[in-house]
Design a binder for these strands. Structure first.
Ligand SMILES: Cc1cn([C@H]2C[C@H](O)[C@@H](COP(=O)(O)OP(=O)(O)OP(=O)(O)O)O2)c(=O)[nH]c1=O
Ligand SMILES: [Mg+2]
Length: 667
DNA sequence: GGGTCCGTCGTGG
DNA sequence: TTCCACCACGACGGACCC
């Protein structure tokens, strides 16, 4: 439908940068697409970050020796092979092909290249990080973690109460999208292994090629070694956009507020539509997929579930031209996640999987048994994410209100080190970026450049300006300043990004800069997003937003026990207040919950103020990263000795500090 | 003790 | 012959400023 796609076909850029062989990326219409990202409102887990950032500079390790080294070497090749195999290698289940053979071919084809060396470096770094995390694990594995257990269980109950099963969310995903579209125009492609992309990179492949191990993100020259008869087709974005538009027209009929994630993917909330029909959710989705096929002759796969996270997982289960319905019942969902590989959870990638595996977590169900350890080792955000994965929780709303945060262009070319040539690249890229910005009527304050050296190491530099800019000249000037400081370099890729964006105030383009500065300030504060977000940054209140004003649960006595009132009294000691209590389990849980309210913590904090703070500071020592994140201004490696200084009561203080930090994040 | 900016990493399509 | 894309986002630590 929307034929705004064809817009302009003038592309002065193609000739020099993009080589003749793989010119598929120089299509002017290669504006990826209108992505939405924000996977489920809080999207990716990314908890490997917590560990990753830690030893940025603490490298050059002197410690550790042959035994661990030896170990690392053993696994090294294995993990590296996995890494080289690529992201989408894991996903596809139905292979019936020799995975080892495929990995071997990829490994052999890569060995010795600069790319390979770089991957090897990254893999070693990851192995090292995991080793260090395992050392932290060793330190705490024998400790008494009942307190952590209680805190985590409290959090789990909280999350369970927040479970929303009222919505019918559907994730729809076209099968081998680009490849399938190409097969429409040339049906003979259906009968041969085929991939879309070029010699340097494939974007996707048809299912015949996948049988040979050819997948998204694989370079074409390696794919050919894997499958010599592979037919490669260059990209044709206008066709994909046209097909996507047809599909979206159908989505619109079932949910006018559907949320497109990419050209070939979208979430639909079918709740409202289901009230207008007698059909079951699965039948409705069958109908949608039939309509898609009638309209485009393309097949789609779908998952139907209570929230976005599990719906997306479900859409992959019967992938080629199939669908999966997961009943919106707690038991069904828990059964589903129990044996679900953690890797299937959107946001858990190759690295996170490796880290979790080292901690004994392979499936979402494994998380529960490791919850206390994970609580100690992961960042609060990551840990929260893991709990939600275990419980099968996710966003149930499709609110897409999200303005773009950045816009960028980048190009790979034959290595350049000549200064004049580099500056010319800046000019070309700046021009492209300025065009894209103009298309969306955007300006920005921050310009960053990205340089990928011939060694494949990446360097990024940024500069923020006091005023908003958008012209190619302004962009190029700043980018060149940034570039000068990096010379000399020999690079294979250059990129330029604009961020700190702001929509062009009016539609008139010829803005006077000086005025725009002033008006910016005015508009800046009252425009756009102001509505729901507090200025809080990192500790994002997620969705719960319970913060408001504290005193959330002052009314403690609403109703104590909902379920059982049978007297199974036991002598229990609350790990929070240390009091001995005689009550049954539900009562005890309730008590612990109460103990964990902010009011309680405040009292604790006051008490602890009286007792001196520096004890807490040292008590929190090295375990940090998951809980502290703010203390140790000192050396980050305060050895375990500091712990010795703590008396008996210090243990309590340490616990209380942890509670405080937990509630800071989670409530 | 807050805030912002910068650079890197992980993830997904 | 050729030797691993391009785009967007969130998390996080460190540097730097109050
Ligand atoms: C994964 C990936 C996809 N794409 C493009 C090509 C894909 O056709 C399109 C959709 O991505 P996907 O939905 O991930 O893959 P697919 O549709 O080709 O195959 P299937 O869903 O059946 O597993 O996005 C890239 O350009 N780069 C990538 O790394
Ligand atoms: Mg798809």
């Amino acid at each position: 439908m929307e034929d705004q796609s064809v817009d302009e076909f003038e592309d002065q850029y193609s000739s020099q940068v993009i080589e003749e062989e793989d010119l598929f990326f120089d299509d002017p219409s290669f504006d990826q697409d209108d992505n939405n990202h924000f996977e489920d409102g809080e999207s990716a887990a990314l908890f490997a970050q917590a560990v990753a950032q830690h030893n940025q500079l603490s490298t050059h390790a002197q410690d550790k020796d042959d035994e661990i080294q030896g170990q690392a070497q053993e696994v090294s090749e294995e993990t590296l092979r996995n890494r080289l195999a690529g992201a989408s290698a894991h996903k596809a289940g139905l292979d019936s092909l020799d995975k080892d053979r495929v990995n071997q071919i990829i490994y052999e084809a890569s060995k010795g290249s600069a790319f390979f060396e770089n991957e090897q470096k990254k893999d070693h770094a990851l192995t090292k990080r995991i080793d260090e995390m395992l050392q932290r694990y060793d330190q705490i594995k024998d400790l008494d973690l009942t307190l952590e257990q209680s805190i985590v269980d409290h959090k789990i109950r909280e999350l369970e109460e927040s479970r929303d099963l009222t919505q019918a969310i559907c994730h729809l995903d076209m099968d081998a999208f680009y490849a399938s579209v190409e097969e429409l125009d040339d049906p003979s492609l259906k009968d041969v292994p085929m991939a879309v992309g070029g010699m340097s990179m494939l974007c996707t492949s048809n299912y015949l090629a996948r049988k040979s191990g050819v997948r998204s993100g694989m370079p074409g020259f390696i794919a050919i070694k894997l499958c010599p008869s592979l037919k490669m087709i260059p990209l044709h974005f206008p066709k994909y956009r046209a097909a996507s538009a047809k599909v979206r027209d159908i989505f619109k009929k079932y949910d006018p507020d559907f949320l497109p994630m990419s050209l070939d993917e979208a979430y639909l909330n079918l709740t409202k539509y289901l009230t207008t029909t007698d059909l079951s959710p699965a039948e409705v989705v069958e109908q949608i997929r039939n309509e898609i096929f009638e309209s485009t002759r393309l097949t789609a796969s779908a998952g139907i579930a209570a929230n976005r996270m599990i719906a997306k997982v479900c859409s992959d289960i019967n992938k080629p031209n199939g669908q999966y319905f997961l009943p919106s019942e707690p038991e069904a969902i828990m059964e589903f996640t129990k044996n679900l590989s953690i890797r299937k959870v959107p946001g858990v990638g190759r690295v996170t999987q490796r880290v979790l595996e080292a901690l004994g977590v392979k499936t979402c169900g494994d998380i529960y048994g490791r919850r206390a350890l994970l609580y100690r080792l992961l960042s609060p955000i990551s840990f929260n994410f893991m709990l939600k994965s275990y419980l099968g929780l996710g966003s149930t709303s499709l609110s897409s209100e999200s303005s773009r945060k950045s816009m960028s262009v980048e190009r790979t070319f034959n290595p350049i080190s000549d200064r004049a040539a580099l500056r010319q690249k800046v000019d070309q890229l700046s021009e492209l970026l300025a065009q894209d910005l103009a298309k969306d009527g955007l300006r920005g304050k921050t310009v960053s450049i990205k340089l990928k050296l011939t060694s494949f190491t990446v360097r990024a530099r940024a500069k923020t300006f006091p005023s908003y800019i958008s012209s190619s000249k302004d962009i190029a000037r700043i980018a060149k300043d940034l570039l000068e400081k990096e010379l000399p370099v020999n690079i294979r890729l250059m990129g330029i990004r604009m961020s700190t964006l702001k929509p062009q105030a009016n539609e008139d383009q010829g803005v006077k800069k000086y005025f725009s500065v002033v008006t910016n300030k005015i508009i800046n504060d009252d425009d756009g997003n102001s509505n729901n977000y507090t200025p809080m940054k990192r500790p994002r209140p997620d969705d719960i937003e319970s913060g408001t004003i504290n005193d959330t649960s002052i009314d403690t006595d609403t109703e104590m026990q909902g379920t059982s009132s049978r007297p199974v009294l036991m002598d229990l000691i609350c790990p929070i207040c240390n009091r001995q209590l005689q009550m049954d389990n539900p009562q005890f849980n309730y008590h612990v919950d109460e103990c964990l309210t902010k009011v309680t913590v405040k009292a604790i904090l006051q008490e602890q103020d009286h007792q001196g703070m520096e004890v807490i500071g040292s008590g929190e020592d090295s375990n940090n990263s998951s809980t502290s994140s703010s203390c140790n201004s000192e050396n980050g490696h305060t050895s375990n000795h500091s712990r010795k200084r703590m008396g008996t009561s210090n243990r309590q203080l340490r616990d209380k500090a942890r509670i405080k930090s937990l509630l800071d994040y989670y409530s």
